[in-house]
Amino acid sequence: MIEPKTPRLSHLELWEKWKSDGDRDAKKQLISEYLPLVDYVTNRMAIGLPRNVSRDDLASNGVMGLIDAIDKFDYRRGLQFETYASWRIRGAMIDGLRQGDWVPRSVREKAKRIEEAYQVLEQQYLRNVSDAEMSAYLEVSETEFRQMLQDIAVTTVCSLEDPIREEESETRKALLIDERAKNPDHKVQEFYIKESLVKGIERLTEKERIVVSLFYYEELSLSEIAEVMSLSPSRISQLHSKAILRLRGVLEHERSQLMQQ
């Protein structure tokens, strides 16, 4: 006699069995249900990373992030697990990359130099500076400057999408607050930081704004953006790096201003 199949439980039922009853089988089913999130984040993270970075390593770290998300998520708050888990998965991958010291010190130093150059020049001119002006400030040719942008493309992966708090999906692109600051006017600070970020985005070139929008809001990969904009993937990577370094500079300047108040 063939036994009837056990009815498939809904996600809510699985969450209830895991969180309320500590049912390990329910947890395993949740992991299985949400594993495609790991593949999705892995594919996005892998774009632009060096060839020596293994997709398998990314995915392995991502699975640990998924398990951590399932352990910490409170389904009763009515939040979307997919959004929360994506940040946790991505954070676990980034932690793995950092522990592996995958970016040479020389590349990090280049990124810092360019970020500081954008910050200085754009505060000085109060406008979007050209590659020629950047090259002159850095004392390199424009060709060398573009190569520097290409070299540091991998460092911008860990950028504006990093969560600020573990329990939330809010990121640096939303606000930048020093949690240790004992300032009762943090809401006012938050407002001005958001305003500063808006101004920073406005200073980006049209192409840079499009890349930021397509990558962070439409969630296209850099290769997909290259097809949409009819540009090479390397050019899209350069535009992304320039945009992120500019925005980092804006946020860092605003934070330093607030810390002095």
Rank of each mutant, 00 (worst) to 15 (best):
L49G: 07
V198P: 01
V212W: 06
P36A: 06
L97I: 12
L35C: 01
S106I: 08
S256K: 13
N128A: 10
I67W: 03
R146F: 02
R44I: 02
V228M: 03
E109W: 01
Q99R: 15
P233C: 11
L49W: 03
Y217K: 09
Q261Y: 09
T6K: 15
L220Y: 14
V53M: 09
A111I: 03
E142C: 08
C158K: 12
K28N: 13
E208K: 14
S60H: 12
R24D: 04
K242I: 09
K194N: 11
R172M: 01
S237L: 09
L79M: 11
V188M: 10
V120Q: 13
V103A: 11
T42G: 10
W102E: 13
H253Q: 13
L97D: 03
V140Q: 04
E122R: 15
D95S: 10
I31H: 11
Q123C: 08
E190L: 12
P36C: 09
P184N: 03
A69T: 03
Y216G: 00
L214P: 00
A174I: 00
K173M: 05
S221P: 01
E254V: 10
P36L: 09
L220K: 15
R90D: 01
Y84P: 02
H11G: 00
E179S: 11
D185G: 00
I89P: 06
L12M: 08
K19L: 02
K112V: 08
S141L: 07
L121W: 06
I210S: 11
Q189V: 14
E13V: 04
K27R: 15
L175V: 14
L247V: 01
G62P: 02
R105A: 11
R172L: 04
V228S: 02
R113V: 04
T156Y: 05
V53N: 07
E144A: 15
K110F: 02
Q123W: 05
V140P: 02
E167V: 10
L149C: 06
L258A: 13
P163F: 00
L12F: 10
E116V: 12
Q260I: 04
R246P: 00
R165C: 06
R255F: 04
